[in-house]
Amino acid sequence: MATEQRKPLPFIANFAAGAIAGVSEILTFYPLDVVKTRMQLETGKSKHGMVGTLTAIVREEGVGRLYRGLVPPLLLEAPKRAVKFASNDFWGKTYLKLSGESKMTSQLSIITGCSAGATESFVVVPFELVKIKLQDKTSTFAGPMDVVKQVIKKEGVLGLYAGMEATFWRHFWWNGGYFGCIHQVRAMMPKAETPQGQLFNNFVSGSVGGFMGTVLNTPFDVVKSRIQSVSKVPGVVPKYNWTYPALVTIFREEGPAALYKGFTPKVLRLAPGGGVLLLVVEFTLNIFRQALGPPYI
């Protein structure tokens, strides 16, 4: 059966492929995420670049610190990536039906990606908050559950959703750039004639998508990190509260470059990480297709 005519895989297949891909990506690139967060939480002019921050962490705190906060994102990655690809599949089918198009277009892929990112953000927030608080250099929390207990004790259950709005915009723009670029790059590349060629095309398009998503969402990630790192004080309005006013504050006080703090480790993780993500997703989906047989092949 021709690829264009094959039956779409069931939801559970897209869910499982996204989960496996997410865990693979984070185990490979997590230390870069720690470095990125440290750079974003540093106010004023940056004292270290990526390499300086990395070596300072290892020298002053030990190699193990590069993996501090790993448990929350590991617990999160499976549902997060699963939701990312499953919701992208859901919204893609929905928008195709609404638009009357027979196949995905560039505009639809961007709208689909943004919608998937918005959906994903609701799953992500509590895990991201715990991770940021553990990655902070000044963190005194004993571990993930200690963060959860203390936040709930001081701020209530809703305290776990601090930074929800910033997280929404971070994922909205990243997914729009990621999935929109994948569609565009795939259309520009020569059609793959072999499985190896298909893998190469997926890695390249996923890497370009990861780079563009990072360019678009880094300012929102900086704001999110700062909102989530600070505990709320009763009666005191937080310096960084709503996303777009916070972007203006950082721009005015620290200059435009501050909105891209942590960009280098972030893009080094998410550009090849986006490629790895897409490779693993497509590889896993192909296994499902082979296992289920016609009409999915």
Rank of each mutant, 00 (worst) to 15 (best):
I250Y: 05
V248Q: 15
R252F: 00
E253F: 04
F220M: 13
Q198V: 02
I227T: 03
G210K: 12
L278D: 09
Q184P: 00
L216G: 02
V230G: 05
V267A: 13
W242H: 10
L247I: 15
N241K: 08
A246V: 08
V281G: 02
V185A: 00
T243L: 13
V281C: 06
V236E: 06
V267D: 10
L199C: 00
K224Q: 15
A271C: 07
D221I: 08
P190Q: 01
P245D: 03
V223R: 08
Q228P: 04
P190K: 01
G206Y: 03
M189F: 07
T249V: 15
P245C: 02
P272V: 13
R226I: 05
V222R: 05
F220I: 06
V215A: 07
V237C: 11
G209Q: 09
P195T: 11
M212L: 13
L199P: 00
I227P: 04
S229K: 15
G197K: 01
F263G: 02
F200T: 05
L270M: 14
S231M: 14
L278G: 03
M212R: 06
G197T: 01
W242V: 04
V281Y: 08
K261M: 08
R252E: 11
Q184N: 01
G209P: 11
Q196A: 13
Y240C: 01
V281K: 04
V267E: 09
A271V: 03
L268G: 00
P238K: 12
G273N: 08
A187C: 04
L247T: 11
S205R: 09
I287C: 04
L270G: 04
F200H: 00
P256Y: 12
G209F: 08
F220D: 04
S231A: 15
V280M: 05
S231P: 06
W242S: 08
S231K: 14
P195E: 12
V208Q: 09
R269M: 14
G235S: 03
F251Q: 06
S231T: 11
T194S: 09
K224P: 00
G274R: 06
V233G: 02
L277E: 15
G255E: 08
V208A: 14
L268T: 02
M188I: 06
V222F: 07
N241L: 07
F200G: 00
K191C: 01
T218N: 15
V233C: 03
V233K: 09
S207N: 07
P238I: 12
T284W: 09
K261D: 14
V248H: 14
F283E: 06
V280L: 04
V233F: 03
P256S: 13
F211G: 05
R252D: 06
P265F: 04
Y240V: 03
L277P: 01
A271G: 05
G235N: 02
N217R: 14
V223P: 06
N286R: 09
V276Y: 06
V267Y: 10
K232L: 11
I250T: 10
L199D: 05
S207R: 05
S205K: 11
L285P: 05
F203C: 04
V215M: 13
G262W: 01
F211Y: 10
N286L: 04
K239Y: 12
V281L: 06
A271D: 03
K191H: 10
I227F: 03
L277M: 15
F283P: 01
N202G: 02
K261C: 10
G273D: 08
V276Q: 11
V237W: 13
F200Q: 00
